[in-house]
Design a protein around this nucleic acid. Structure first.
Length: 512
DNA sequence: TTCCGACAGTGGGGTCGCAAT
DNA sequence: ATTGCGACCCCACTATCGGAA
């Protein structure tokens, strides 16, 4: 199949807003693909590469190569070139990769170049990714969409399921069962504004500690232990302590869901930044482990002794977890009957925060484990802080925000009346707010370099955030974590905005 | 007819590893 | 030794479609 066909369909998919039409277009393309092309075409349809990320980003693609006039590249040509580029390493590799990327772009038409750009940067912007591709695949093969989706979650891979469907038809889906050693996409949580709201929605539930670390799925099959991240990357080699802990448990075959965190000498949880650095260390794991030893803490069991627990209610899965994992290696929890116990749930949250943890996750007791879904049966609750900050500048947006000032630079007051930038945010704005702030900030503009519009520091905005992190980038030595806009405060003058001093005082544990 | 679940998009900060400077 | 790039951890929030209620 010609690569140009995919580029054209991607444009059509992007041009239609109807999801049903996107699904039909992707399904049609899949039906027309030859068997050998399927393992390549399927990830492309979902906006990904079969090889995963290849170390090719904006900088390497920014070459302005004149496009080819006639489309000649096939899907397999592109795949072979990308595999080759991905395999180039060592001294001189950057120049060589740049050259190979340039050659590929020269062989591509303008439409193909655009599509390649999207695939390589992970931003196809066609309003369709994996979930829509799964629907297209179901439509093309006549398999029930729900069954295909479930098979993909259990296989952790769209390609595998697509090939099986192509070879053996809908009956092949039965082969995809939970298997120890093969990671499944983890279940995720939605956000609730308060514990009371979460308990009101869920009724009888468990309230569990939310630990601020790295999510892990731990598989043990006899002496073989594998550890996977939320995106199913294998990080076994970086976490020998977790492997030891799994081998010490009184069970030979299991899959557990949990979090990796670290405690300091006083038993307080270390910051996310420290855990992230530790888990990210691949070269000298022993040194990293000596500085930041990690603990694994579990909250769910997906499989024990060959029994698939996914469809069991949480109560039953947790009973299995408690049988296998001793209490210190489990997340603390409290059971709640319903809204009448909201006070007890609040008290548990307060105790959890007192221990230095991030918040709680409220979980329905009768819900199954919905692999890969961000369902309403798990609700996370974290404390939210707010500040009144001053807009110092704004960046022009991309995609559907093109032509709008989107990403705000946020400042807190210094004692001398100047402002110290604490970070940026693009979150929380409605389309109406985007339109309004674009107008308003243009009135205040003192400079526009085509990327950043610097403004007079006069507009006050209320910002919600989850806490402070240390920063080497910003002048106060700290930055806001997960900052988002709540509302503009036109009633406030910049002289009334929060000061750097008050921001730091609100988070004494983070002061540099 | 209205409501709501699921998805995609729009980017944020930090950290590590690697290659280039 | 330092810098820049890319991958991958953590993530919030809004708009939209289309099926459920």
């Amino acid at each position: 199949m010609l690569f140009a066909r995919l580029a054209r369909v991607s444009q059509e998919v992007a041009a239609t807003s109807a999801r049903s039409r996107k699904i039909a277009l992707l399904g049609e393309l899949f039906r027309d693909a030859e068997a050998e092309d399927v393992p390549i075409v399927i990830p492309y349809l979902a906006g990904r590469l079969p090889q995963g990320r290849l170390g090719i980003g904006w900088k390497l693609l920014d070459q302005r190569i004149p496009p080819a006039v006639e489309p000649t590249l096939t899907v397999r040509d592109v795949d072979a070139r990308l595999t080759e580029i991905g395999s180039v390493t060592g001294a001189g590799s950057q120049g060589e990769r740049r050259r190979l990327v340039g050659e590929m772009l020269a062989a591509a038409t303008a439409d193909e170049q655009r599509y390649l750009f999207g695939l390589l940067t992970g931003e196809v912007r066609q309003g369709a990714l994996e979930a829509v591709a799964v629907e297209g695949l179901a439509g093309a093969t006549g398999a029930p969409p729900a069954d295909v989706r479930r098979a993909v979650m259990l296989a952790g891979s769209l390609q595998t399921v697509a090939q099986a469907l192509l070879a053996d038809g809908p009956g092949a889906l039965d082969r995809f069962r939970l298997t120890v050693g093969r990671p499944v996409l983890p279940m995720l949580a939605q956000t609730a504004a308060s514990v009371a709201e979460a308990v009101r929605k869920l009724g009888a539930c468990a309230v569990e500690e939310k630990l601020d670390g790295i999510r892990v799925q731990v598989h043990r099959d006899g002496d073989d232990v594998r550890i996977h991240t939320r995106t199913l990357d294998d990080i076994t080699d970086r976490l020998p302590e977790v492997t030891s802990a799994a081998l010490a448990l009184a069970g030979e075959r299991f899959i557990l869901d949990g979090e990796v965190i670290s405690f300091d000498e006083d038993g307080r949880p270390r910051s996310f930044q420290e855990i992230s650095g530790r888990v990210g260390s691949r070269v000298d794991v022993a040194t990293a482990a000596a500085a930041v030893p990690v603990s694994s803490v579990f909250f769910d069991a997906l499989s024990v002794d060959g029994r698939d627990l996914l469809d069991l209610p949480f109560t039953d899965r947790h009973a299995e977890l408690a049988r296998l994992v001793p209490e210190p290696m489990r997340v603390r929890r409290t059971l709640v009957r319903g809204p009448e116990d909201a006070g007890a749930a609040e008290a548990f949250l307060a105790r959890t925060l007192g221990r230095g943890h991030e918040g709680v996750v409220v979980k329905s007791l009768d819900a199954p484990y919905s692999a890969g879904r961000r369902g309403a049966s798990w609700l996370k609750v974290k404390p939210v802080h707010t500040l009144d900050l001053v807009v110092l500048a704004a960046e022009w947006g991309h995609g559907r925000r093109t032509g709008r000032l989107s990403n705000l630079h946020l400042g807190a007051r210094n004692p001398d009346g100047s402002f110290a930038m604490l970070g940026k945010t693009f979150k929380g704005m409605t389309d109406a707010m985007l339109a309004w702030q674009t107008e308003r900030l243009r009135e205040l503009a003192v400079e526009d370099n085509g990327w950043v519009v610097t403004v007079r520091p006069e507009l006050v905005v209320e910002i919600a955030y989850d806490g402070l992190q240390r920063s080497t980038r910003y002048p106060a030595g700290v930055t806001l974590r997960f900052a988002r806009v709540v509302r503009y405060r036109e009633d406030k003058r910049p002289q009334e905005a929060d000061t750097v001093e008050t921001v730091l005082a609100a988070h004494p544990e983070v002061i540099p």
